[in-house]
Protein backbone atom coordinates (compact mmCIF):
# COMPACT_ATOMS: atom_id res chain seq x y z
CA UNK A 1 0.00 0.00 0.00
CA UNK A 2 1.29 3.44 -0.95
CA UNK A 3 0.23 6.36 1.20
CA UNK A 4 0.94 9.97 0.27
CA UNK A 5 0.87 12.53 3.06
CA UNK A 6 0.87 16.20 2.02
CA UNK A 7 2.14 18.37 4.87
CA UNK A 8 2.66 22.07 5.37
CA UNK A 9 3.99 24.62 7.79
CA UNK A 10 1.60 27.18 9.29
CA UNK A 11 2.15 30.20 11.55
CA UNK A 12 2.50 29.29 15.21
CA UNK A 13 -0.48 30.97 16.88
CA UNK A 14 1.31 31.21 20.18
CA UNK A 15 3.34 34.04 18.68
CA UNK A 16 2.06 37.55 18.14
CA UNK A 17 0.60 37.87 14.63
CA UNK A 18 1.21 41.15 12.79
CA UNK A 19 -0.52 42.36 9.65
CA UNK A 20 1.47 43.53 6.62
CA UNK A 21 1.48 47.15 5.48
CA UNK A 22 -1.03 46.45 2.70
CA UNK A 23 -3.42 45.12 5.35
CA UNK A 24 -4.13 41.97 3.36
CA UNK A 25 -1.95 39.26 4.87
CA UNK A 26 0.24 38.48 7.84
CA UNK A 27 3.61 40.15 7.99
CA UNK A 28 5.52 37.00 7.18
CA UNK A 29 9.04 38.23 7.80
CA UNK A 30 9.34 37.24 11.46
CA UNK A 31 6.66 34.61 11.54
CA UNK A 32 7.46 31.49 13.52
CA UNK A 33 6.21 28.46 11.64
CA UNK A 34 5.24 24.98 12.80
CA UNK A 35 3.78 21.87 11.23
CA UNK A 36 0.01 22.06 10.77
CA UNK A 37 -1.17 19.98 13.73
CA UNK A 38 -3.76 18.12 11.64
CA UNK A 39 -1.04 17.16 9.13
CA UNK A 40 0.84 15.72 12.08
CA UNK A 41 -2.22 13.57 12.81
CA UNK A 42 -2.43 12.54 9.13
CA UNK A 43 1.20 11.47 9.17
CA UNK A 44 0.63 9.57 12.42
CA UNK A 45 -2.36 7.70 11.00
CA UNK A 46 -0.32 6.78 7.91
CA UNK A 47 2.55 5.56 10.08
CA UNK A 48 0.13 3.53 12.21
CA UNK A 49 -1.09 1.80 9.05
CA UNK A 50 2.52 1.18 8.09
CA UNK A 51 3.30 -0.27 11.54
CA UNK A 52 0.22 -2.49 11.44
CA UNK A 53 0.47 -3.96 7.99
CA UNK A 54 3.27 -2.42 6.05
CA UNK A 55 2.97 0.58 3.76
CA UNK A 56 5.16 2.94 1.85
CA UNK A 57 4.67 6.42 3.25
CA UNK A 58 5.64 9.48 1.20
CA UNK A 59 5.64 12.91 2.83
CA UNK A 60 5.20 15.67 0.27
CA UNK A 61 5.24 19.44 0.72
CA UNK A 62 5.36 22.59 -1.32
CA UNK A 63 8.67 24.41 -1.21
CA UNK A 64 8.75 27.11 1.45
CA UNK A 65 10.38 28.37 4.64
CA UNK A 66 11.43 25.65 7.06
CA UNK A 67 9.93 22.93 4.89
CA UNK A 68 13.07 20.78 4.71
CA UNK A 69 13.05 20.52 8.48
CA UNK A 70 9.42 19.41 8.45
CA UNK A 71 10.14 16.78 5.79
CA UNK A 72 13.18 15.47 7.67
CA UNK A 73 11.09 15.26 10.83
CA UNK A 74 8.59 13.14 8.87
CA UNK A 75 11.45 10.86 7.78
CA UNK A 76 12.70 10.60 11.35
CA UNK A 77 9.23 9.46 12.38
CA UNK A 78 9.12 6.80 9.67
CA UNK A 79 8.23 8.28 6.28
CA UNK A 80 9.99 6.37 3.50
CA UNK A 81 10.18 9.03 0.83
CA UNK A 82 10.33 12.83 0.85
CA UNK A 83 9.21 15.07 -2.01
CA UNK A 84 9.39 18.84 -2.31
CA UNK A 85 7.22 20.46 -4.97
CA UNK A 86 8.83 23.53 -6.53
CA UNK A 87 7.55 26.39 -8.63
CA UNK A 88 4.39 27.48 -6.83
CA UNK A 89 4.22 31.24 -6.38
CA UNK A 90 0.64 31.75 -5.19
CA UNK A 91 -0.57 31.12 -1.67
CA UNK A 92 -4.09 29.82 -2.27
CA UNK A 93 -5.09 26.27 -1.38
CA UNK A 94 -6.49 25.85 -4.88
CA UNK A 95 -3.03 26.46 -6.35
CA UNK A 96 -1.31 24.31 -3.73
CA UNK A 97 -3.78 21.47 -4.30
CA UNK A 98 -3.41 21.65 -8.08
CA UNK A 99 0.38 21.57 -7.74
CA UNK A 100 0.15 18.56 -5.43
CA UNK A 101 -2.25 16.85 -7.83
CA UNK A 102 0.12 17.40 -10.77
CA UNK A 103 2.95 15.69 -8.92
CA UNK A 104 0.92 12.97 -7.17
CA UNK A 105 -0.61 11.95 -10.51
CA UNK A 106 2.82 10.68 -11.50
CA UNK A 107 3.25 8.60 -8.35
CA UNK A 108 1.79 5.28 -7.32
CA UNK A 109 -0.73 5.74 -4.55
CA UNK A 110 -3.65 4.12 -2.79
CA UNK A 111 -4.38 6.66 -0.07
CA UNK A 112 -3.77 10.38 0.15
CA UNK A 113 -4.02 11.55 3.75
CA UNK A 114 -3.57 15.12 4.92
CA UNK A 115 -4.83 17.37 7.71
CA UNK A 116 -8.55 18.15 7.69
CA UNK A 117 -7.84 21.88 7.68
CA UNK A 118 -5.18 24.47 8.41
CA UNK A 119 -5.39 27.80 10.22
CA UNK A 120 -4.81 29.72 6.98
CA UNK A 121 -6.76 27.85 4.29
CA UNK A 122 -9.10 30.72 3.46
CA UNK A 123 -10.12 29.27 0.10
CA UNK A 124 -10.78 25.77 1.33
CA UNK A 125 -9.18 22.63 2.66
CA UNK A 126 -6.32 20.80 0.96
CA UNK A 127 -7.71 17.26 1.18
CA UNK A 128 -10.99 17.93 -0.60
CA UNK A 129 -9.54 20.21 -3.29
CA UNK A 130 -6.68 17.83 -3.99
CA UNK A 131 -9.06 14.87 -4.21
CA UNK A 132 -11.18 16.62 -6.81
CA UNK A 133 -8.19 17.71 -8.87
CA UNK A 134 -7.03 14.08 -8.78
CA UNK A 135 -10.56 12.95 -9.58
CA UNK A 136 -10.75 10.56 -6.63
CA UNK A 137 -13.35 10.31 -3.83
CA UNK A 138 -12.77 11.99 -0.53
CA UNK A 139 -13.90 11.91 3.12
CA UNK A 140 -13.11 14.71 5.56
CA UNK A 141 -13.06 14.93 9.37
CA UNK A 142 -11.67 11.42 9.63
CA UNK A 143 -10.75 10.00 13.04
CA UNK A 144 -9.68 6.50 12.13
CA UNK A 145 -8.65 4.44 9.11
CA UNK A 146 -8.44 0.67 8.86
CA UNK A 147 -7.32 -1.24 5.80
CA UNK A 148 -8.21 -4.84 4.86
CA UNK A 149 -7.01 -5.82 1.40
CA UNK A 150 -8.26 -3.18 -0.99
CA UNK A 151 -11.09 -2.09 1.29
CA UNK A 152 -10.69 0.88 3.59
CA UNK A 153 -12.90 1.46 6.63
CA UNK A 154 -13.14 5.13 7.46
CA UNK A 155 -14.52 6.75 10.58
CA UNK A 156 -15.86 10.24 10.04
CA UNK A 157 -16.83 12.37 12.99
CA UNK A 158 -20.05 14.39 13.13
CA UNK A 159 -21.06 16.72 15.96
CA UNK A 160 -21.69 15.46 19.47
CA UNK A 161 -19.18 12.62 19.17
CA UNK A 162 -21.33 10.73 16.64
CA UNK A 163 -19.27 8.78 14.13
CA UNK A 164 -20.25 7.56 10.67
CA UNK A 165 -18.51 4.48 9.34
CA UNK A 166 -17.89 4.20 5.61
CA UNK A 167 -16.32 1.49 3.53
CA UNK A 168 -14.38 2.71 0.54
CA UNK A 169 -12.22 1.43 -2.27
CA UNK A 170 -8.84 2.93 -3.13
CA UNK A 171 -7.69 5.34 -4.41
CA UNK A 172 -9.12 7.58 -1.76
CA UNK A 173 -8.26 10.94 -0.21
CA UNK A 174 -8.84 11.61 3.47
CA UNK A 175 -8.89 14.80 5.53
CA UNK A 176 -7.61 13.61 8.89
CA UNK A 177 -8.96 15.24 12.04
CA UNK A 178 -7.27 13.01 14.58
CA UNK A 179 -5.13 9.90 14.38
CA UNK A 180 -6.13 6.90 16.48
CA UNK A 181 -3.04 7.56 18.62
CA UNK A 182 -1.41 10.78 19.80
CA UNK A 183 1.16 11.77 17.14
CA UNK A 184 4.56 10.30 17.96
CA UNK A 185 7.29 12.51 19.25
CA UNK A 186 10.68 12.54 17.62
CA UNK A 187 13.81 13.84 19.35
CA UNK A 188 15.80 16.58 17.60
CA UNK A 189 18.86 14.33 17.34
CA UNK A 190 16.89 11.91 15.20
CA UNK A 191 15.70 14.71 12.91
CA UNK A 192 19.28 15.88 12.58
CA UNK A 193 20.34 12.37 11.60
CA UNK A 194 17.53 12.21 9.05
CA UNK A 195 18.70 15.50 7.56
CA UNK A 196 22.02 13.80 6.83
CA UNK A 197 20.71 10.41 5.72
CA UNK A 198 17.38 11.12 4.01
CA UNK A 199 17.04 12.58 0.56
CA UNK A 200 14.49 15.16 -0.51
CA UNK A 201 13.45 14.72 -4.15
CA UNK A 202 12.45 17.90 -5.91
CA UNK A 203 9.63 17.83 -8.43
CA UNK A 204 8.22 20.70 -10.47
CA UNK A 205 4.60 21.77 -9.93
CA UNK A 206 3.91 22.15 -13.65
CA UNK A 207 0.98 24.10 -15.04
CA UNK A 208 -1.56 25.22 -12.48
CA UNK A 209 -4.12 27.40 -14.24
CA UNK A 210 -6.22 27.82 -11.10
CA UNK A 211 -6.40 30.31 -8.24
CA UNK A 212 -8.56 31.10 -5.21
CA UNK A 213 -11.05 32.91 -7.43
CA UNK A 214 -11.60 35.54 -4.76
CA UNK A 215 -9.41 38.36 -3.53
CA UNK A 216 -8.57 39.46 -0.01
CA UNK A 217 -9.84 42.97 0.61
CA UNK A 218 -8.65 43.28 4.16
CA UNK A 219 -7.18 41.39 7.11
CA UNK A 220 -7.81 42.64 10.63
CA UNK A 221 -7.83 41.48 14.21
CA UNK A 222 -11.27 40.84 15.65
CA UNK A 223 -12.09 43.22 18.50
CA UNK A 224 -10.24 41.39 21.25
CA UNK A 225 -11.73 42.00 24.64
CA UNK A 226 -14.76 43.70 23.12
CA UNK A 227 -16.96 41.35 25.07
CA UNK A 228 -14.86 40.74 28.13
CA UNK A 229 -14.39 43.06 31.06
CA UNK A 230 -10.72 42.50 31.86
CA UNK A 231 -9.74 41.95 35.47
CA UNK A 232 -6.28 43.21 36.33
CA UNK A 233 -3.97 42.69 39.24
CA UNK A 234 -2.15 39.77 40.78
CA UNK A 235 -3.56 36.24 40.64
CA UNK A 236 -4.80 36.78 44.23
CA UNK A 237 -6.56 40.05 43.31
CA UNK A 238 -8.08 38.51 40.23
CA UNK A 239 -9.31 35.47 42.16
CA UNK A 240 -10.93 37.73 44.78
CA UNK A 241 -12.69 39.71 42.07
CA UNK A 242 -13.95 36.50 40.44
CA UNK A 243 -15.33 35.34 43.80
CA UNK A 244 -17.12 38.69 44.08
CA UNK A 245 -18.65 38.24 40.63
CA UNK A 246 -19.72 34.68 41.36
CA UNK A 247 -21.31 35.75 44.64
CA UNK A 248 -23.07 38.63 42.96
CA UNK A 249 -24.50 36.32 40.28
CA UNK A 250 -25.60 33.86 42.93
CA UNK A 251 -23.30 31.14 41.66
CA UNK A 252 -21.22 30.90 44.80
Amino acid sequence: MNIIVPIKQVPDLVEELEINSAGTDLDREWLKMKLNEFDDHALEEALLLKDEQGANVTAIALDGDDIDKALFAAAAKGADRLIKVTGVAGTSTHEAAKAMANVIQGLEYDLVMTGVQAVDDRDGQMAVLLAHYLGIPHVSVVTGVQVAGSSVTVHKEYGGGMVAEFEAATPLALGIQAARETPRYVPVAKVRRASRDANIEEMAAGDLGVDAGSTVAKMYKPETGAGAEMIDGSAEDQASKIIEILTQKGIK
Binding site: H94, D123, G124, V128, A131, Y133, H138, K156, A212
Partner: peptide, 23 residues
Protein backbone atom coordinates in the same frame (compact mmCIF):
# COMPACT_ATOMS: atom_id res chain seq x y z
CA UNK B 1 -18.59 24.55 7.65
CA UNK B 2 -19.54 21.29 9.30
CA UNK B 3 -18.33 17.74 9.00
CA UNK B 4 -20.63 17.20 6.02
CA UNK B 5 -20.10 20.62 4.51
CA UNK B 6 -16.33 20.19 4.60
CA UNK B 7 -16.80 17.29 2.16
CA UNK B 8 -19.12 19.17 -0.14
CA UNK B 9 -17.95 22.77 -0.49
CA UNK B 10 -14.50 22.07 -1.94
CA UNK B 11 -15.84 19.43 -4.29
CA UNK B 12 -18.45 21.79 -5.71
CA UNK B 13 -15.79 24.50 -6.07
CA UNK B 14 -13.47 22.34 -8.15
CA UNK B 15 -16.20 20.63 -10.18
CA UNK B 16 -17.76 23.96 -11.17
CA UNK B 17 -14.60 26.04 -11.20
CA UNK B 18 -16.10 28.40 -8.62
CA UNK B 19 -14.32 30.39 -5.94
CA UNK B 20 -14.63 28.91 -2.47
CA UNK B 21 -14.49 31.11 0.62
CA UNK B 22 -14.27 29.04 3.79
CA UNK B 23 -14.92 29.69 7.51
Amino acid sequence: NTSMGMDIAGGVSVANNLPFIAY
